[in-house]
């Protein structure tokens, strides 16, 4: 089923075509922001919001059926919990590795390189997953409200 050929759902062909081109770079940019969180402005939250907004754009342009094919709401809330658990387990691993909660137990590496700052990039990935999935889940929840109100 090609979403471009179903004009009754979502917005016009123009919006759909542009969205199709724009969504992959947005997601890529979000991932870049997450991975460079320890070097440049941004980080888990900002990157996660960007990734989440890419999915929101998909939903707006193609209607929620298509977006649900990419990422279901239940999957989004599972991913949210997984992200939080990654972050928490990193904090707890600090106790196991060095005896302090939130201890940065990985080697720090050379400053200003992509592989540096110990576990901060990993924590950023966890936060990114959580925030992206969370923002999308919030958006979907609010949409579902509107549909049920109309009935």
């Amino acid at each position: 089923m090609n979403p471009l050929k179903e004009p009754q759902r979502g917005m016009t062909v123009i919006v759909k075509t542009i969205a199709k081109f724009v969504v992959p770079p947005i997601i890529l940019f979000g991932i870049y922001i997450v991975l460079h969180g320890h070097l440049t402005p941004g980080g888990g939250f900002a990157g996660g919001v960007i990734v989440g907004s890419a999915f929101i754009l998909l939903t707006l342009a193609f209607g929620k059926e298509v977006a649900f094919q990419k990422l279901k709401r239940s999957t989004a809330s599972v991913l949210e919990s997984v992200g939080a658990l990654i972050f928490l387990s990193l904090a707890l691993l600090g106790i196991a590795a060095g005896g302090w909660f939130f201890l940065n137990f990985l080697p720090k590496g050379h400053p200003l390189r992509i592989l540096s700052a110990g576990f901060i990039p990993l924590a950023n990935i966890g936060i990114g997953i959580k925030v992206g999935a969370g923002i999308f889940a919030v958006f979907l929840t609010l949409i579902v409200f509107r549909v049920s109100a109309k009935k």
Binding site: E80, A84, L85, L88
Partner: peptide, 10 residues
């Protein structure tokens, strides 16, 4: 409790 909260969602 935080960990329990997120596991419970799962």
């Amino acid at each position: 409790p935080l960990g329990a909260a997120f596991i419970l969602v799962l």
